[in-house]
Amino acid sequence: MNSIASRSRQKGLSFIGLVFLVAVLVAVVGIGSQSLPVFLEYQAAVKAANKAAAEGSTVAEVRASFDRAAAIDDIKSVSGSELHVTKVNDKVVVGFEYSREIHLAGPAYLVYRFKK
């Protein structure tokens, strides 16, 4: 009887629980390490689009400015020709849309869709 009572008071993580926790952590780190460059590229594209909108007054100038910044920041997901350039109250507004896929395993992909 005493061994049953001591087992019920034991606390901690079982081996199977530890294996499950490690598997989840490996998956999170693996996906995160592949996702980080995608988000950094998006932030660079937003920065380049805002800079292009501030520098250019025509569609051609905005696209050329974005392409120059894209070459420096190594932005490959969107180019100047894919920008949506409009004017709102005499202010140039630049937007874009694109998606990036990360291959996980087999037929599984993680798709990120970005829109500014």
Rank of each mutant, 00 (worst) to 15 (best):
M1F: 12
M1W: 13
N2F: 08
N2E: 12
N2W: 05
I4W: 08
S6N: 09
S8R: 14
R9T: 10
R9H: 09
R9G: 13
Q10Y: 05
Q10L: 11
G12R: 08
G12H: 10
S14Y: 06
F15H: 05
I16R: 10
L18A: 15
V19T: 14
A27V: 14
A27G: 11
V28D: 09
V28G: 09
G32T: 10
G32K: 12
Q34L: 11
V38K: 06
F39G: 05
Y42D: 12
Y42L: 09
Q43S: 14
A44L: 03
A44W: 04
A44Y: 10
A45E: 07
V46K: 08
K47S: 15
A48C: 06
A48E: 01
A48D: 04
N50R: 13
N50C: 01
K51D: 11
A52P: 02
A54Y: 08
E55H: 02
E55T: 14
S57E: 09
S57L: 10
T58V: 05
T58S: 15
V59M: 01
E61T: 03
E61L: 06
V62I: 08
R63V: 02
A64V: 02
D67C: 05
R68H: 10
A70E: 06
I72M: 10
D73M: 09
I75K: 02
K76Q: 11
V78I: 14
G80K: 00
G80R: 00
S81G: 09
E82M: 08
L83T: 00
H84W: 00
T86L: 07
T86R: 12
V88P: 00
V88T: 11
N89A: 13
N89D: 15
D90I: 02
V93Q: 08
Y98C: 03
S99M: 01
S99H: 08
I102S: 04
I102M: 06
H103L: 07
H103G: 06
L104K: 04
A105Q: 06
A105R: 00
G106M: 03
P107L: 06
Y112W: 11
F114M: 11
K115C: 01
K115A: 11
K115N: 12
